[in-house]
């Protein structure tokens, strides 16, 4: 089987004065479509940088990143925008909802995203059939049918994170990226969110990549990529991933 995502000798270097600092160095990895992958590592290991590169939010300083055979490391800003608009859903640790929009409006915002990017790009062809989902249904699917008109400030952390997931799912993306999605939540709420993500991966066949420093999450993933000091330390395949209910932290 051909990988959906492939990193080849990827490097991300920052210059601080005359000194080079490598956030990522010589990273090679593959991820297959429909997988649920957990990227594990301590703070400063390069997890978030990896996720940013994967989501087209940043570009590497070396190496290649292939998504469905397209080398996004060579993309210009405009092309990356189109890539993000069609392919990627992102869930942030602190939800990053637009505070002046209601839950419904935050999700419906995705209509604006697609409206404003170039039609006829490779992604549109690649993703034919991946039409936007109805914002109301999507919110209902994450259990927020009763919270449509609430502003983020009126919701709990878990509700906000579920809104954030609904926003990511509404795009019907092939790739769902989650940056410490339970980092700001208590254990029970965190489990709910994890269950939701697991369901998305298994039922809707979205590829889910989750970044976390919490090693307990390794059990629910199809594959676990451990990162340390900007390099991939190990890649382990989980033949029988556990359900989110079974993990504890």
């Amino acid at each position: 089987m051909k990988p959906f995502i492939e990193f080849r000798n990827v490097e991300k270097k920052y210059m601080i004065g005359d000194n080079a600092f490598y956030a990522l160095k010589d990273v090679n990895l593959s991820i297959y479509e429909g997988e649920m992958v957990v990227i594990l590592g301590p703070s400063g290991a390069g997890k978030s940088t990896l996720l940013n590169l994967l989501g087209g939010m940043d570009s590497p300083t070396g190496g290649n990143i292939f998504i469905n055979d397209h080398d996004i490391s060579k993309f210009k800003d405009d092309e990356l925008t189109v890539y993000r608009a069609w392919n990627v859903g992102v869930v942030f640790q602190f939800y990053n909802l637009v505070p002046t929009l209601t839950a419904y409006e935050n999700v419906a915002l995705m209509k604006d995203v697609r409206k404003n990017v170039k039609r006829g790009s490779v992604w549109e062809k690649d993703n034919a059939g991946l039409e936007l989902l109805d914002p109301k249904e999507t919110l209902a699917s994450v259990g927020l049918a009763d919270h449509m008109d609430q502003f983020p400030s009126q919701m709990s952390g878990g509700e906000q994170q579920r809104t954030s997931i609904a926003r990511a799912l509404a795009k019907n993306p092939r790739l769902l990226l989650c940056d410490e999605p339970t980092g700001a939540l208590d254990t029970d709420t965190g489990k709910e969110v994890l269950k939701l993500l697991q369901r998305v991966s298994s039922k809707q066949k979205h590829t889910v990549v989750m970044v976390t420093h919490n090693s307990s999450f390794a059990d629910i993933a199809d594959r676990v990529i451990r990162v340390k000091n900007g390099t991939v330390n190990s890649i382990i395949t989980n033949d029988e991933p556990k359900s989110a209910d079974e993990v504890s932290w």
Binding site: G55, M57, D77, D78, T81, V82, R84, A85, W86, V88, V90, F92, N96, V98, L109, M110, D112, V113, R114, N116, V117, R167, K171
Partner: peptide
Amino acid sequence: GTLKALGFSK
């Protein structure tokens, strides 16, 4: 940053 990450063009 979030709007950009969500795919809004500059």
